[in-house]
Design a protein around this nucleic acid. Structure first.
Lengths: 202, 202
DNA sequence: AATTTCCGCTACTAATTAGTAGATATTATT
DNA sequence: AATAATATCTACTAATTAGTAGCGGAAATT
């Protein structure tokens, strides 16, 4: 038992540091983006050396992939925790609200849209693809259901709705409002939701 | 006159090549983005050497700045050529339609939103800033006017409308639809317009 | 206390790429 | 035709950065 608990303790510390690394990665990705984020940036932010960083993640691509997987998992967990009785449209609205809040606070990047290079890299990451497909399947179902009830426009092709929905989670208007308007985060979220769902004409 | 015409001819050739360089830059920026675009890429695409490229533009930042300035000027020209009698809302709609079409055809990047690095670089480019402010002033006026007529939601803060409007010109949903749906470019444009203005709920 | 094991670090390599020096070809001038 | 001027290229430099070799020191074991 003493050996076991020691190992377990070491593993725990290891896991803890891994999380710290992913936190730092998420934040740096949010501010500098993939191409400008260096492995030294991440190592320095965590307070370890680069070779130690490579003990946890075998490459930059791997590291970024894991950070994004954690993000997707967060979205999946959020959906799972919602009241099952909630109408599909309300679930979609909550999820978008959650995504906007996470982004305004921690700086979630949602990179796939940003650069072809990053997108292609992620397409080669099977673990990432698996999670994305899982989340996408759930969201797709919600979209179709919300179109059936008429909460979402049934005349729009559902992939138009789906892709537009994803786009709103990384809408650059959020950053511009945060930087140039005097609104607080909650006001930004509410306005973004209103525009995303109801449009600009009202 | 012979000296003059010769100089003028040389200048013309120079200008012609400069345009070819800017075309190549725009296209490469659209596909690879700023960080991954190399000066060798551009030189090769045009069929000249890198030092020749530097005869036209003194740095990568300068080159990209000029490419974006040409883009902004295109938007300003488009607005100027519109029928003055057109209601503000229709002008905004036309301009967005134009921007989406340019992007679907040539691959306009509208980078500012993409990366902090690029945005900061552009903020130091006075010539670029001047054009952007000119265009922004015109769009801002149109937004306010369209809110007054009620075509755009008068209850939304006008900067929310303004930033959301800009965001739609670089909405990643466009690329996803182009890649994964069977729609043609015109159908994509019409759906994007509908979603941008009327939202997802109808 | 002596020895082994393992962890993390400093200091490197290799590859990429913005930008340039200086050689070479081409055109204009006498 | 010979020379001057200009344009373009090949081949470099310097800086950055992903990824690694191998050393030094701490902890565990005897």
């Amino acid at each position: 038992m003493s050996i076991f608990s020691k190992l377990s303790f070491k593993d725990q510390a290891f896991k803890l540091r891994e999380n710290a690394i992913l936190d730092a990665t998420t934040s740096i990705l949010g501010s500098k983006g993939y191409d400008l984020m260096t492995m030294d940036d991440v190592a320095n932010a965590v307070g370890i050396s680069k070779p130690s960083l490579y003990k946890h993640f075998k490459s930059k691509e791997d590291l970024v992939g894991e950070a994004l997987i954690r993000l997707i998992d967060g979205a999946i967990d959020f959906l799972a925790q919602l009241d099952d009785e909630l109408p599909p449209f309300e679930k979609l609205k909550s999820l978008l609200e959650w995504a906007l809040r996470v982004r305004l606070e921690g700086g979630m990047p949602f990179l796939p849209s940003t650069s072809n290079h990053v997108r292609e890299m992620l397409m080669r990451n099977l673990k990432y693809i698996t999670r994305v497909l899982k989340l996408n399947g759930q969201i797709e179902k919600l979209v179709l259901a919300a179109q059936k009830t008429g909460d979402l426009n049934p005349e729009l092709p559902s992939d138009v709705i789906l892709f537009s929905y994803y786009s709103r989670t990384c809408d650059p208007a959020v950053e511009y409002l945060q930087r140039f308007s005097k609104m607080d985060n909650e006001a930004i979220i509410q306005h973004m939701l209103q525009v995303a769902l109801g449009g600009l004409t009202k």
